[in-house]
Every structure is written in C-alpha cells, then in structure tokens.
C-alpha cells in the first residue's frame, strides 16, 4: 500500500485543546493510531490525555500546543499495519443469532458457509464507541458489509455478536441496538477491575471460533 496515493493526513482543530487527524481510509487510520500510541509510550505526546481512534480519524485531546503538533502530524510516517504482530484474542461464539439466515442471504451463501466466512476472517478492533467496551472490528471487508436493521431492537442481549456496515461488534451489556445478530458469546467483554477494562480495546487482534452446534 503506497502512502503517496493520498498525500499527508488532514489535521483539523477541535476547540482550543484538541486535534482531529483525518486519514483516507480505515487501515491508515488504524496505522496512525498505532503510531500515536508508540509516540505516547515514548513520552513524545506531552499532555495529551485522550487518544481516540474512529472509523477514519484519530482524535488527540488535551494538547498543550495544538499549533505545533498540528504542524508535526502530517510528517508522521506510521508503519504499515501488517508489519505489526500481537496475540489474537479468541472469542468462542454460538452462531445462533436470529439474523444469521438473513446475513447469509445478503452474502449469497448458505448459513454454514456464512459461519465459515466469519470464523476464517482475522479481525482487528479499529475503535470503540457506543458503550464502554463496544469495539468496532474490521476484517470482513467491504464485500460482506450489511445494512443495519430497519427497526432497531429495544433490547439486544449482552454477548450478542453482531454485524453492521463492514464491522463486527459484540454487545458488552444489554442495550438497544440495530445491528444484525449472528451469534452469542459468554466471554466477559467489559470489567472495570481488569486492565484494560475492555477485552476488545483498539488495536487488539481477534478471531471468532464456532462453539458447538453449527
């Protein structure tokens, strides 16, 4: 992947103390996030207190000198994502979600084949949001993107494994939700006494495995 294709990232001011870095796509946003964490660990980000990745952006909040950092950011050269390794978190899933047949149909495959596709992919937590510990996982690719449900459910059970757009997510606790439910897991996604509190923190590699049944 050539970084020349799109030029340097765009940097936007957010209030007096924050910067939003806009990247051309999710992969580069994830790579830029990893670079920010590397620099913070090396003590190069000073007062920055929040580093928040999202779909195509990275937010840096609590910046002492936004003018100076805004001038530096376009010159960062993040390592490509595939160059980094880490142990994948394994999430055992019962593929029993009520929307699984519909997802298989959207993909144009059988239900067992849909499960095979989901368990064969390697995922990475691109960012968190919506609720504490709710990760947006990339890895399926755009061709398996699915729409949200037209009518959100008022209560999605905790542990539901679900799809929306190109993302896979797991509901850390029961909440309303419009994602397509494909299965259920018993792993504890959120525990404030654990470090980190979120099992699926940004940057984490994830694999889903089929547990029993299908």
């Amino acid at each position: 992947m050539s970084s020349r294709r799109s030029g340097p990232p765009r940097v936007l001011r957010v209030g007096d103390r924050a910067l939003l870095v806009e990247l051309p796509d999710g992969d580069r946003a994830e790579a830029f996030h990893a670079e920010a964490l590397r620099r913070r660990a090396a003590g190069q980000l000073g007062s920055v207190r929040e580093v928040v990745p999202a779909a195509r952006t990275l937010l840096l909040d609590g910046v002492d000198d936004p003018e100076r950092l805004a001038a530096e950011l376009p010159h960062w050269e993040p390592a490509p994502l595939h160059a980094r390794v880490g142990e994948a978190v394994e999430v055992p899933v019962r593929y029993d979600g009520p929307d699984l047949p519909e997802v298989a149909e959207l993909w144009g495959v059988s239900v067992p084949e849909a499960v095979r596709i989901h368990t064969a992919a390697e995922f990475r937590v691109a960012f968190c949001g919506f609720a504490p510990g709710f990760g947006y996982l990339t890895g399926l690719g755009e061709r398996y993107a699915v729409p949200r449900r037209a009518t959100p459910r008022t209560a999605v059970p905790a542990g539901s494994v679900a799809l929306a757009g190109p993302y896979t997510g797991v509901y850390p606790r029961s909440s309303p939700g419009g994602w397509q439910l494909i299965g259920t897991t018993d792993v504890v996604l959120w525990d404030p006494r654990r470090e980190p509190a979120a099992l699926l923190a940004p940057g984490t590699r994830v694999r889903f495995t089929a547990e029993g049944g299908r």
């Binding site: 207190r49 929040e50 580093v51 928040v52 990745p53 937010l59 909040d61 960012f127 968190c128 949001g129 919506f130 609720a131 504490p132 510990g133 709710f134 980190p196 509190a197 979120a198 923190a201 940004p202």
Partner: peptide, 9 residues
C-alpha cells in the same frame, strides 16, 4: 473519568 475515551468511556 479521564483517559478512557478510546474504550468508549
């Protein structure tokens, strides 16, 4: 609860 926004907090 500063410093946990990246986990959705």
């Amino acid at each position: 609860r500063v410093g946990h926004a990246h986990l959705g907090v």
